[in-house]
Amino acid sequence: MQAYTPLMICVRCRTPLKTFEEYDSVASLRRSATPRGDLLEVRYLHPPRPEPWDHEPEPGVANVDSEIAMICDFCSSPGPRFLWLTGGKARLLRAMDGGGQVHDFGSSPWAACNTCSAIVRAGNLHMLLDRWRKCSFSLRGANRHQRREEEALIRRMFSAFLNTRPQGPFPIPPSGMAGS
């Protein structure tokens, strides 16, 4: 049975955080999403948005009573309406200076707006990427090299998610969710 990964939020602004694990080495990116070596650090970051964050993340575990300011995990639109559960662990490795960074999407639910939920239901990676490109804040001000690098990372992330054969959509209950 798959272990549950708790949802980490910023206790200051109630926004779900992205999880990154730093390892001193990683397996081949082509063959495996398995970290090798020692875990050096776990970091939590705010998701991208048009205006800069006015504070550093203050990580904490969300509980059932937590009020959460949710955004769509695919296009960053506020007020997602649905959750998708991964069919397994969705991990993404990125080699860095001889070591590696693992973005662990874990078994936490992925939030989706109406549009992205329909695209996930269809399992269409290309449409999901098109939607991300249209709505992405992380591409603003980026040069061509940065855009290609970011798009390759997002492509691998969405592909890893879709490869878990996610289950859903499940409606997000209105209680406890800010901005929904």
Rank of each mutant, 00 (worst) to 15 (best):
E51H: 10
L83N: 14
M70V: 10
S175V: 05
E41R: 15
V102H: 04
P80S: 09
T115C: 08
C135Q: 14
L129V: 09
M8V: 14
C135G: 04
P50V: 11
K134L: 11
W110I: 08
W110C: 05
E41W: 07
A142P: 03
E150A: 15
V26N: 03
R165P: 01
I9H: 03
E41P: 02
V102E: 14
L39E: 10
M1E: 10
P48C: 09
L128Q: 08
L92N: 09
I71L: 13
R49A: 15
R94P: 05
N124Y: 01
L93S: 02
R147I: 15
A160C: 03
E51P: 01
D97T: 04
Q101K: 11
D24R: 10
V102D: 06
D97A: 14
Q2S: 07
A62D: 09
S175K: 06
R12T: 13
G106V: 04
R147D: 01
G100I: 02
T5K: 05
G79N: 12
L39T: 06
D24G: 09
E21C: 09
P80R: 01
D65M: 13
E149R: 14
R147E: 07
S28E: 06
R133S: 04
I154L: 02
T34M: 07
I9Y: 02
R155T: 15
L29V: 14
R156P: 00
W132Q: 05
V26Q: 03
E56G: 04
M96C: 08
I71K: 09
R148S: 11
P47E: 00
L162C: 05
R81I: 05
A33M: 03
G60M: 12
G179F: 11
Y4L: 10
L92S: 07
A160M: 02
R43K: 13
G37H: 02
T164R: 00
R147H: 06
L128K: 03
L45Y: 09
T19F: 02
H46V: 05
W132Y: 14
N63I: 07
C75L: 11
K18C: 01
Q167T: 07
G141I: 01
G98H: 06
P16Q: 02
S108V: 14
K134V: 04
V42N: 08
D24W: 08
A33F: 00
P109R: 04
G60P: 06
F137V: 05
W53I: 10
R49V: 05
W53N: 07
L45C: 11
H46G: 06
A118Q: 13
V102F: 03
S28N: 15
R131M: 13
H126S: 12
S77Y: 04
G100H: 04
G87K: 02
N114V: 14
S117D: 06
K134E: 13
A95V: 11
R30Q: 11
P174E: 06
P171N: 09
A69K: 13
G100L: 02
R81F: 08
M157K: 15
F158D: 01
C13W: 09
F20N: 04
E67K: 15
R121F: 08
